[in-house]
Nucleic acid binder design. Structure first.
Lengths: 351, 351
DNA sequence: TATATAATTGTAATCGATTGCACAGTGTGT
DNA sequence: ACACACTGTGCAATCGATTACAATTATATA
């Protein structure tokens, strides 16, 4: 039998093809390609040369099946078209690429069913690990999730944590972030600082709130329940919340929002009511979304270094893969950065 | 032999396990699970029941190896943390998920070597298709790319096209976009319309420019070479270009930029020189980045419906997969939408 | 020269699922 | 009663690579 090789040849060359050509075994070829020390340098060289000649490419699927390693990692986020998540994924991808891993993206749209389904299909696809930002506070009661815990593949939480024993997480110190933002507002001379929160069943939002509260307390400012509004993370919600705040008999002179979007809504509402920012009311957002910097009235915000968070997540994953059996629980907490911009710079309005 | 099943059991159940338990062959199990009509309903039911009982999950890797279908699709973009690409990927992922495909993300950072490397590793990973936004105008001369063309897997270009025979693309009509933007500016009463372009070796930027030119011509406005500046897509570049324009003895009364970022730079520069927007100079950007809407002086822009573009790309891919042998070349061209905002609304400044 | 030892390579099973072909059992037609 | 068709399963090869173990050859040692 004779193979005619043309550029239109679609069949991939396998180690068997190489073996046949060199009159050796596929086993030897495999070993040579893997630089197994038991193979003589002569054959190694020969095999390598022939492999490139024949345009050999390793079939990762076959390899994965045999080794139980797919070199694919699943990443689950609520949505990828959010600058924060996209940046995290960027970090993850860049770091993992260097280790030969590929990133499979899944979106939940904050839907618990989707979350479970994604976990399931990722497991079927035999990913070597799952990195996720949970969108479900009751995830530990989820069946798919339990299944996941029984697997020996690493599971990591980034961004959103939830204290589940044995699970590593990479997050920022939300308490510290809330504290820093609030302290900054106090330093600017604000006395009645309100807080736009988001669902505090999530630890991140609860922690931001607690940091806010602690800063008030440390500065002997009484905590006023009426200044805290739990809202959604979007412009409209920010407007609504701000309307409420402005109706108080004693309205706030500062707003610390757990979301840049509601912060923007707040600013729009304040402006529409003719209230000067930052002179009358200072505003600080959260996440350092690109637009906060671009605005003419740039918005102070908390930077979460998402790319770095992604890279760190990837690194922890790699570590866990390496110490196979010992999945030591790691809780990495990154320090958030307060970015001070015009919306909260009374003292130096040129900023 | 006796298997004790515990929740800590890590080994996955295979069709062989099911077969053993039911005293039938793995072949039968496989057929039953695949609803092969040659299997009696009785055994089908039995197998299915036992499968769920035993927590069976299909190993996609094994399946992929056998069928030559991994149900993974590679997506290559320059960077994922750009709203435009992230939105496209969102669309792709959502659409493909419904067909059982997973999306593997790769970033090139506009680096030609990375582009080639990504193609290579994706092929090794046996993806069923590659969807990409090319970052390399000479891609058709690239070795990896040639290799890719010889495979039978579908290759699709989105966003950026390059006329390569046999390759389908999903793009927007950049000519029309350039035309619309320019016509709009003319309708607003602008007479000297400048254009901030980007590297016109790329078809998208060339087409936008050509659309611009055509609109001028159709309105009997002379084309003035000095009003066209080729620049980069960032704020600083936009400022620099605008400085140059303002130094002309006869400066423009409108700027149509091929990028929202340089449009923003232009606006910043105009403002810093005390020039009123839109009264003295109108500005239109490109891409409808989120910030264009959020600015107080909101920026008119061209919306490329990236999510829709992603979905369309995914749909074309699915089509091509289905008509296996006939990869009919498809050139899908989506119509861009002009979003008119304050930066170019002389007539109705309330907008 | 005979033999222990090290260096290479081959054999064959394995990962988990799919599928062409063979075969047994039942049913139908003449 | 016999040939033929049809159903439902089993057998075994296959996808491509890896690897424990066996076998062979080459080298070193006595």
């Amino acid at each position: 039998m004779r193979y005619i090789k043309t550029s239109r040849m679609t069949k991939k060359t396998t180690i068997y093809d190489i073996a046949k050509k060199l009159n050796i075994t596929a086993a030897t070829v495999s070993r040579a390609l893997n630089k197994n020390p038991k193979i003589s340098d002569a054959t190694k060289e020969l095999v390598l040369k022939t492999a490139t000649e024949m345009n050999y490419e390793q079939n990762k699927l076959a390899q994965a099946l045999k080794n139980g390693k797919s070199y694919n990692v699943g990443v689950i986020v609520s949505r990828i078209d959010s600058n924060f998540f996209a940046s995290i994924i960027r970090g993850i991808e860049e770091e993992l690429f260097n280790h030969g891993y590929h990133v499979i993206i899944c979106q939940t749209n904050n839907n618990e069913k989707m979350e479970a389904e994604n976990i399931n299909t990722l497991l079927n696809a035999q990913v070597d690990g799952i990195l996720m930002s949970i969108s479900n506070i009751n995830i530990d009661k989820n069946i798919m999730f339990k299944k996941l815990l029984n697997k020996k593949i690493p599971l990591l939480f980034f961004d959103r944590k939830k204290s589940i024993p044995g699970i590593s997480s990479i997050t920022i110190d939300d308490f510290s972030a809330g504290y820093k933002a609030t302290q900054h507002l106090i330093d600017e001379g604000c006395k009645r600082i309100s807080h736009l929160s988001v669902d505090r069943n999530f630890e991140i939002f609860r922690d931001r709130f607690l940091g806010y509260k602690q800063a008030l307390s440390d500065n002997n400012i009484p905590f006023d329940e009426s200044l805290v509004i739990e809202t959604k993370s979007n412009i409209e919600a920010g407007k609504e919340a701000t309307k409420k705040l402005l109706k108080l008999q004693n309205p706030p002179d500062a707003i610390f929002s757990s979301s840049d979007f509601s912060a923007l809504g707040a600013i729009q509402e304040l402006k529409s009511q003719g209230i000067k920012i930052p002179q009358e009311v200072c505003v600080v957002g959260f996440s350092n979304e690109p637009f906060t910097k671009f605005m003419e009235l740039s918005i102070s915000s908390i930077d979460q270094s998402p790319v770095e968070m992604g890279k760190t997540t990837a690194r922890v994953f790699i570590q866990q893969i390496k110490n196979k059996e010992k999945h030591v629980e790691q809780k990495v907490v990154l320090e958030p950065k307060l970015i001070i911009r015009k919306s909260s710079s009374k003292q130096n309005p040129s900023k």
